[in-house]
């Protein structure tokens, strides 16, 4: 089924500048791997050398952190939005500081 995934500002430069993307996927894992197949430059930012999701990458299904669901095995219904959330909440911003 088609699922929409949102991409944080810091990673959009590796995803053709897009803020979100809709892909066919049954689980969070297949969605993320599908994203990286579409945009290979995203790969090293999301996955480690063993192909596992880097441990500080935050992925949410709706409002739920996948760490508290079934991780990459979390099943998708198609109606929810999956989000990659910045690893640091707040601070003094990064690329965001460019906002006028």
């Amino acid at each position: 089924m088609a699922v929409t995934i949102t991409i944080p500002t810091a990673l959009r430069q590796y995803a053709g500048g897009q803020a979100s993307l809709t892909l066919e996927a049954e689980t969070v894992g297949t969605l993320l791997h599908g994203l990286v197949e579409t945009y290979p430059d995203l790969g090293r930012h999301l996955f480690n050398e063993q192909g596992k999701l880097r441990n500080f990458v935050n992925v949410y299904v709706g409002d739920e952190d996948i760490r508290y669901l079934d991780g990459e095995e979390t099943r998708l219904q198609g109606s929810e939005t999956v989000s990659i959330i910045p690893a640091i909440a707040g601070g003094s911003g990064d690329t965001s500081y460019a906002a006028p």
């Binding site: 944080p8 810091a10 990673l11 430069q13 090293r44 930012h45 999301l46 500080f56 990458v57 910045p86 690893a87 640091i88 601070g91 003094s92 990064d94 690329t95």
Partner: peptide, 9 residues
């Protein structure tokens, strides 16, 4: 090593 990182500040 990436703009997506966990090094606050």
């Amino acid at each position: 090593d990436s703009p997506y990182h966990a090094l606050e500040g």
